[in-house]
Amino acid sequence: MFIISLSYKKDISEVEKFIDPHIQFLDKYYSEKKFIFSGRKNPRTGGIILARNVNRDSLQEIIKQDPFYQNEIADYEITEVNPTKYDEDFKVFIEK
């Protein structure tokens, strides 16, 4: 499982220009069961994506498809995490 932290490196007005294609990108990987959740940071300096069912190399290839990456809107930090304790309701995301 991976936490992807996006940090905007351009003004919000530039971010907004690519929101719709970014949402389409997200939707593609939700439909493939690779993304669990995504959302904006508060304050709005970037976003977070939680990913599963991928390895680091394939995740890096997925990120290259994000319009935010392609248009140099955000930097990406990838953190791998192995959940060892979690709410019972979260188990569905841990077990395959």
Rank of each mutant, 00 (worst) to 15 (best):
M1P: 05
M1H: 00
F2N: 02
F2K: 00
F2G: 01
F2I: 01
F2V: 03
F2W: 05
F2D: 01
F2H: 09
I3M: 04
I3V: 12
I3Y: 15
I3D: 06
I4Y: 08
I4H: 05
I4A: 02
I4L: 04
I4S: 05
S5C: 10
S5W: 15
S7T: 08
S7Q: 10
S7Y: 07
Y8M: 05
Y8A: 10
Y8Q: 04
K9R: 15
K9N: 08
K10T: 06
K10D: 02
D11T: 08
D11K: 14
I12E: 11
I12N: 15
I12M: 10
E14G: 08
V15P: 01
E16Y: 08
E16F: 15
K17R: 07
K17C: 05
F18D: 07
I19Y: 07
I19T: 00
D20K: 15
D20S: 13
D20Y: 12
D20G: 14
P21A: 02
P21E: 04
P21I: 00
H22P: 01
H22M: 10
H22W: 06
H22Y: 07
Q24E: 14
Q24I: 14
Q24L: 11
Q24G: 08
F25W: 02
F25C: 06
F25Y: 09
L26R: 02
L26I: 13
D27I: 12
D27A: 12
D27Y: 07
K28R: 14
K28F: 14
K28G: 06
Y29M: 05
Y29L: 01
Y29T: 01
Y29D: 01
Y30E: 02
Y30P: 01
S31G: 06
S31H: 07
S31T: 12
S31M: 12
E32K: 15
E32I: 09
K33S: 13
K33E: 13
K34R: 09
K34W: 03
K34M: 09
K34C: 06
K34N: 05
K34F: 06
F35R: 07
F35T: 00
I36D: 03
I36F: 11
I36G: 04
I36N: 08
I36C: 10
F37A: 12
S38N: 10
S38V: 03
S38L: 12
S38F: 10
G39L: 03
G39R: 02
R40Y: 03
K41Q: 12
K41E: 04
N42H: 13
P43L: 12
P43G: 14
P43Q: 02
R44I: 13
T45M: 13
T45E: 15
G46A: 05
G46W: 06
I48Q: 10
I48A: 12
I49T: 08
L50E: 08
L50H: 11
A51V: 05
R52M: 08
R52V: 08
N53E: 01
N53M: 04
V54G: 10
N55I: 07
N55Y: 10
N55L: 06
R56Q: 11
R56G: 05
D57E: 15
D57F: 15
S58N: 10
S58D: 14
L59G: 00
Q60A: 13
Q60I: 15
Q60D: 09
I62H: 07
I62L: 06
I62N: 06
I63A: 08
K64Y: 11
P67V: 07
F68Q: 00
F68E: 02
F68W: 09
